[in-house]
């Protein structure tokens, strides 16, 4: 039987290519257009590759003469250390509230489990994309003009930033869940909240924890510059020293930022690896 039906299959067409005529032509044209644009940009901007390469030794020279040695006394000062702690506090608060608010928004903005595709979905998407589309420093400037200088403005800016950052990642994660358990919980007559808790959360809990930690890590990096625009924390010291051309102090502050961000990144990476093993 099987053999007979195999033999009756008509001979395969002789010519085969991955992309057929209109598709292949379009691909080729797009590639050509991109390359042309790149070449034109290089020519138009007068980008001189040799000068770019030459910039690196010059940068090293300036760093060595003006920024060295870093003024470590300046960063051991109690006021500065207090501002570092405030930066940490802002990142924790902003990260926490950002994550808390972004979960319901992500729920609305996940196509598969949203309350309504006509109303809730676009609202959730709009809120998340709105937070993302404006850079965190601009949020800081906006909140500082409304609320005045200080940590409150910075914390709010970081919260909005985290809503955009975590909300996008959360809703992507929600859209990838297995809908089987959701069907099962709906069919026992569970309410939307019960469906979320019993069928959705168990599937995303590990990923959400990882994302929350990652969000804090990114929020901390953002928090170091929020102060530059009046949002509180160590960024203010950066602004003052750069404006007064105190290069060795700037160097010390930059070293502290690099060290802290590295520590935060290594710590959060380690935690996330631990958690993802709990799957």
């Amino acid at each position: 039987m099987a053999l007979a039906s195999l033999q009756s299959i008509p001979a395969a067409p002789r010519r085969w290519s991955r992309y057929r005529h209109p598709q292949s032509t379009i691909r080729f044209a797009v590639l050509l257009a991109v390359l042309t644009f790149l070449a034109w940009s290089v020519a138009f901007l007068n980008v001189d590759l040799l000068r770019i390469l030459g910039a690196f030794p010059r940068l090293a020279e300036i760093l060595a003469t003006r920024y060295f040695p870093p003024d470590l006394n300046y960063v051991s000062d109690a006021d500065f250390i207090r501002s570092v702690i405030r930066t940490l506090e802002m990142s924790l608060l902003g990260g926490f509230f950002g994550v808390v608010f972004s979960i319901p928004l992500a729920w609305l903005a996940a196509r598969n489990i949203t309350f309504s595709r006509r109303i809730a979905y676009p609202l959730g998407r709009f809120a998340i994309m709105g937070s993302r589309s404006i850079h965190e420093t601009i949020w800081t400037i906006l909140f500082v003009t409304v609320l005045g200088f200080g940590m409150l403005a910075g914390t709010l800016a970081l919260t909005v930033f985290c809503i955009g950052f975590a909300g996008k990642l959360f809703s992507d994660e929600l859209e990838a869940i297995d809908m089987g358990p959701v069907d099962a919980m709906r069919s026992v007559g569970a309410s939307p909240l019960q469906v979320f808790q019993y069928a959705v959360l168990p599937q995303v809990r590990v990923a959400f924890t990882g994302i929350a930690i990652y969000t804090w890590d990114v929020a901390f990096r953002a928090a170091t510059v929020v102060g530059f625009f009046g949002g509180g924390g160590m960024g203010w010291y950066l602004k003052r020293t750069t404006q007064q051309l105190e290069s060795t102090r700037v160097a010390a502050i930059l070293l502290v930022i690099i060290a802290l961000v590295l520590i935060a990144e290594i710590g959060s990476g380690w935690l996330r690896r631990r958690i993802s093993r709990m799957r």
Binding site: P181, D183, A184, R186, S187, V188, G189, S191, P202
Partner: peptide
């Protein structure tokens, strides 16, 4: 929901919550 809770459903892919 009140109607659904009177209807039992069993699925081809079981549809259990694996992590519970």
């Amino acid at each position: 929901r009140h109607l659904r809770r009177r209807i039992g459903m069993i699925f081809q892919e079981f549809n259990l919550v694996n992590r519970m």
